[in-house]
Design a protein around this nucleic acid. Structure first.
Lengths: 110, 110
DNA sequence: CGAGTATATTCGGATATACTCATACAGTCA
DNA sequence: TGACTGTATGAGTATATCCGAATATACTCG
């Protein structure tokens, strides 16, 4: 939040973006796209998420700029928009790891 | 997501953390805490969020490790748990800025 | 102890979000 | 053109989440 002034509208916009990451299914999709471009049907295969559901979540991620789409014939190829997307996930994962190791350490000392 | 294997449970845990950021009110609270420790009543004054609501959100942020609490007499002093919290916000804000400037540029060229 | 204050929690209604099923919309190829 | 396939979308339902009002809890001080 380096923004000079944070308006309610701005909070809304940022929150909407975080909300996109706040759903396990979407994280799973981003994770599946970490190794490169995939079509919807490939994702159906690798993630066990229903096609309709997958398509919907991909639309959201697309609308928010977290993934990009390339249509080629019948297929839609989705890929992560940039590396920062993974960086966000890694930051949060890192916090979780720290938390769990801290918890373990606390148990040992007790 | 540097984790060796992402399990469904792990996705849930990470998503829960992102979900905390996915709410304008909580972002506003984090923003208000950016300049240091504050009590609940101070935050009521500076944010115009109702006390009950504020307390609720602070509990969530506390449970997820984004803020810490120090109780002293009647008062509860909350502060950001670490700098990373702001970094996450800044990353997302940065994306939003890029998006909007890109949109403006697109309008100009059109 | 009893009043007063700061914070936390419970309850209930309103709203949003995700999911499934069925269907629509391309685009390909015979 | 017509069958077929991959992707997107509409409708309906179930679940989660937010908020306000009221209440509970914890601490201080007379």
């Amino acid at each position: 939040m380096r923004q000079s002034r944070m308006t309610p509208a701005l909070f809304e916009l940022v929150a909407a973006r975080f909300k996109a990451f706040g759903e396990p299914v979407r994280l799973q999709i981003l994770h599946a796209l970490a190794d490169g471009e995939h079509t919807v049907s490939e994702l159906v295969g690798s993630t066990a998420i229903a096609q309709a559901n997958l398509s919907r979540h991909l639309q959201q991620l697309l609308a928010l700029g977290f993934v990009t789409r390339r249509k080629r014939g019948l297929f839609a190829y989705y890929r992560l928009a940039d590396r920062e997307v993974l960086k966000l996930c890694e930051l949060m994962c890192g916090r979780l790891e720290k938390e769990t190791t801290a918890r373990k350490a606390a148990l040992k000392s007790a």
